[in-house]
Design a protein around this nucleic acid. Sequence first.
RNA 1: GGCGACGUACCCAAGUGGCUAAGGGAGCGGUCUGCAAAAUCGCUAUGCACCGGUUCAAAUCCGGUCGUCGCCUCCA
Length: 464
Amino acid sequence: MPTYFYNTLTRRKELFEPINAPTVRLYTCGPTVYNYAHIGNFRAYIFEDLLRRYLQFKGYRVIQVMNITDVDDKIIRTANQRGVGIDEFTAPYRQAFFEDLDALGIERAEYYPRATEHIAEMVGLIQILLEKKFAYRTDDGSIYFKVAAFPAYGQLTRLNIAEMRQGERVANDEYEKEELHDFALWKSWKAEDGPVFWETSIGRGRPGWHIECSAMSTKYLGNHFDIHTGGVDNIFPHHENEIAQSEAATGEKFVNYWLHCEHLLVNGEKMSKSLGNFIYPRQLIEQGYQPAAIRYALLTTHYRQKLNFTLEKLDASAKAVMRLRDFFNSVVGESESNENRLTEVVKSAAQAFEAALDDDLNISEALAAVFTCMHEINNFRKENGFTNTEAKAIRALWERFDSILNILKVPAPRLTPEEQALIELRSAARKAKNWVEADRIRQILTERGIILEDTPQGTIWKKR
RNA sequence: GGCGACGUACCCAAGUGGCUAAGGGAGCGGUCUGCAAAAUCGCUAUGCACCGGUUCAAAUCCGGUCGUCGCCUCCA
């Protein structure tokens, strides 16, 4: 089945065709490591994880690059204030980033290049742009990209640069440039940068922000690759500038498909410093929320739709995850028969799931297929039970769904010996029909976030 | 000012011209259970912000109104 993605470049859904099938080359804008990444950031990374997993589901071999921006104004300023080097300053955040990726079940990319380790590549690119007259040097030694020299500028954004309001230009225009929309490729060293600079053939200084993505994407994926993603706020100026730099330097088309993820709001408002409403995944996990529930909450709203994050949504997600998981665990064959009366149900569910995701990753519709299928199978089970063959087929189907959703398998939580003992005490009380004592113990455990379920096979427990 | 997105049930959220408007959560009722919990079954939008228009047919297309939000130089 053919796959369609909405391409920001054309503002249309387009048939996806890789340059060199079955390989797909994917560049995903990554974090600036001056703090922990918040759930808004992770919404984007989970969208990219969905994209990556789905491409693999379709049989493609994905080569993904995610940059780590470990030098920028904010990092330099803060590191200097604290009197530490930028490498030392960013180290804990780099580490935390990978921990969070793992916690949320995000599959690792093939490359996580750091900006500070690719200065040479950036300098090389800037030199080409200087030679080709797409860049110029100002009196202080900084280097800017000359937007006027690249007529295609504005193709992604569809902003008419000439008509954009001039009055709003940023006051702290510390560097001298010829025209408003020219942007920095290289920032020459200034006193407040302190020890942060590189001594290079184009002078002493540091790279501008946009150039790292051009340099690193090209290095790992080639001049022309398949997909580039990021948040909608990256469209302008970041991605527009990347196109300009890359295409000016190489003379080739840069990227075929641009996919952008909408913003996440918290209780209806944008996360911002002034509102102080940042939420971090690690924070939610500490509060006892299942990482899989966080993943589900961030995954299950279509990526081009604004997502309003609330604790109610997180609770609803936790329930849905639990249901899918319990169903999977409950599917057991009851007879040796090779009969499979569910062939059609399984087949049509798999098809509906794939068809939905083929349509620009319509995850809501894909999930509807999953739940509808679960419903049908439950009704079937009530009458018939499962043969071993049927159980195997259903479990395989769920595993297939989970290669995208990735919520089924979570590390088993542990009980303390004391909690374990309480459960045994309660079982004994139940056996003795001492219901008062049994209920008392259950209440204690509930308060600790441990939920008990008495089944014919004995008591099982879960963590909230 | 320019560019753009959105408004579907109590909440979340698909559907963008044609069968009874998906699915999840919540609520209510049944099964199960010592009681629960979980699971499961059933029920819950004659209507898709509002007003007009096009059409045999509109949540879906067109025009307008109201409301929410985003971007317009470094925030995913």
